[in-house]
Amino acid sequence: MNVDRSDRDEAQMIASILAGDKEQYHDLIRPYERSVYKMALSFMKNDADAEDVAQEAFLKAFRKLADFRGHAKFSTWLISITLNEARRRLRRASAVPMESIDQTAEEGGHVSPALLRDWREVPSEALERKEIREILIEAISHLSPIYREVFVMRDVEEFSIDETAAALTITPGTVKVRLHRARMMMQNELAPKLKNANPRRRWFQWS
């Protein structure tokens, strides 16, 4: 996560909060509001539920703050609380699970990328268009949970391999394997769709 911590002493802030200065919690979490929401939305699929999960996660983190011993980074700890909250909601929501939320086994089979020759880079300005953002979010939601959580931590939140491993309590090797498969699945689904997303070509594609 790209948070500039140069002028923040989070350990000191946490100590003050635990000593009774609760107001400081507002400042402590401010840099992480966005990443917690993104993680929540990757799992909940609608804004209202994602916001609810984000709020619960921040409250739980506050209540459990005394358990945070600085063995992990606060951001990593916070994101794993968010993930647990999202999993808890999904479990509760699906009496008959549509997908196994706690799946730990690696899924078998080889993931092949989409084969292209004529890839033209999609410029980031394309993200100004809602349909492009929706295509990306939808592709993330199509990943099964074990791949989605790794992909979101690493490629959406930009945690390192080791931070991702720590937050998910899996080995760095497992992170790499799942990340590889997740990226190939994303490429496989998205490359054919985004091939036509170059702004200069859109009218030929959709008119």
Partner: peptide, 12 residues
């Protein structure tokens, strides 16, 4: 390219 796009703050 897909990794770069998904990391963009505008997506979410």
């Amino acid at each position: 390219n897909i990794v770069v796009l998904t990391a963009d703050d505008r997506v979410f």
